[in-house]
Amino acid sequence: MTEAEIYAVLTQVFRDVFDDDEIVLDSGTTAEDIAGWDSQAHVNLVVAAEMKFGVRFRTAELESLHNVGEFVQLIAGKHKGG
């Protein structure tokens, strides 16, 4: 999966979770930029991304997710590792 493909799928995940078809992501997007991105929504994002990408994030990884760029890198790393 290329980075661009991950962005495309992740954008759909964000749009579903926040019920907002206008959301556009870039690597610098943080919780500040998206209305409703609170701690509960964060868990929802993580779970939706896990389902969509068929990966699981480790407990320790979840604590270091602060922006969309880190999210994408994490997913890309897991896909590379198989």
Partner: peptide, 14 residues
């Protein structure tokens, strides 16, 4: 258990 430690969720959102 991951969701429990992350957010004290007994039932996973899934």
């Amino acid at each position: 258990p991951v969701r429990w430690h992350q957010a004290k969720q007994l039932v996973s959102p899934v």
